[in-house]
């Protein structure tokens, strides 16, 4: 089986986000970059599937500036066999990224399963996985937290609204977007970290995958940080007065009732 896993490099969850001078993006200085946690689930699933099917390969794909190679090294240290990097600028949007990844995959001889995370934790857009599937013309199953591999495809358990689940079957080739609960991603062993340093990372230009800046559909104009959290208010008085004051505040200040 030829297995692919698409990952995104995102700021660490503890990062204190600051805006850049033009306010059209975040200030990336001093940021610790990590593999988006949902993408780690995708990597783990890809590795498990590869190991169950001797002769298979797991290739990691990422589109973005050269820093994303570091994230791909993490995936290689976890056990992925090789990596493909599409060199896109920092500002590339979901569409350009998705089309570039699809373009890179089309250049491969064959793909059976493509794994992604259900969304990236930075913009939380949940766009790229479905766009990739669209560009490749293959089915995609999102928010997957269980898989059962069949000879012709995969039976997926996916989360839907209201805490319910549904079972979806799709045939190869297909794309699966992982949700938390699918597995517990492994911690790379030291020999694998050492080996990862020597594994192949192939870098492609947008022109190699048939995309260009024209594929960027969204341009960010202005970002604003959420207002700082205000201290809680304690309402005093007898219960009746407290209730009255609470309703007044909810109506006049919070404007929710």
């Amino acid at each position: 089986m030829n297995i692919y896993v698409c990952i995104k490099q995102v700021p660490d969850t503890e990062t204190k986000i600051k805006l850049n001078a033009d306010q059209n993006g975040i200030d990336t200085t001093g940021i610790k970059w990590i593999v988006s946690p949902y993408d780690e689930l995708a990597i783990e699933e890809a590795l498990r599937l590869r190991d169950k099917n001797p002769g298979s390969t797991a290739t990691v794909v990422s589109a973005g500036p050269v820093r994303v190679v570091e994230a791909m090294r993490t995936a290689l240290a976890m056990g992925a066999d090789s990596a493909i990097h599409v060199d896109l600028p920092e500002s590339a949007d979901n569409n350009w990224v998705a089309k570039s990844i699809a373009g890179a995959l089309k250049k491969e001889s064959k793909f059976d399963v493509i794994f992604t995370g259900k969304e990236a934790i930075d913009d939380g857009a949940a766009q790229v996985s479905q766009l990739v599937a669209e560009y490749l013309g293959i089915p995609s199953v999102t928010v997957v937290l269980g898989t059962e591999y069949l000879p012709s495809g995969v039976r997926c358990k996916r989360e839907i609204e209201g805490g319910s689940f549904e079972m979806v079957e799709a045939s190869f080739p297909l794309l699966i977007a992982a949700q938390k609960g699918l597995n517990e991603p492994r911690y790379a062993s030291l020999p694998n970290i050492m080996k990862a340093k020597k594994k192949e990372v192939k870098t492609l230009k947008p022109s190699d995958v048939g995309t260009s800046e024209a594929d960027q559909k969204i341009r960010y104009k202005n970002f604003q940080l959420p207002p700082p959290k205000q201290a809680g208010k304690k309402i005093s008085g007898d219960p009746a007065a407290q209730a009255k004051e609470l309703v007044r505040l909810l109506h006049e200040e919070a404007k929710v009732v």
Binding site: D12, T13, E14, T15, K16, K32, I34, E184, R186, Y187, A188, S189, L190, P191
Partner: peptide
């Protein structure tokens, strides 16, 4: 060598790798 340890330790390692603290703080 084997990546075998109590599951909760993985978060500790990741925190130390990403934030230089065993606890998840910036």
């Amino acid at each position: 060598m084997e990546s075998k340890f109590p599951a909760e330790v993985q978060t500790v390692f990741k925190n130390m790798e990403n934030n230089a603290s065993p606890w998840a703080f910036a």
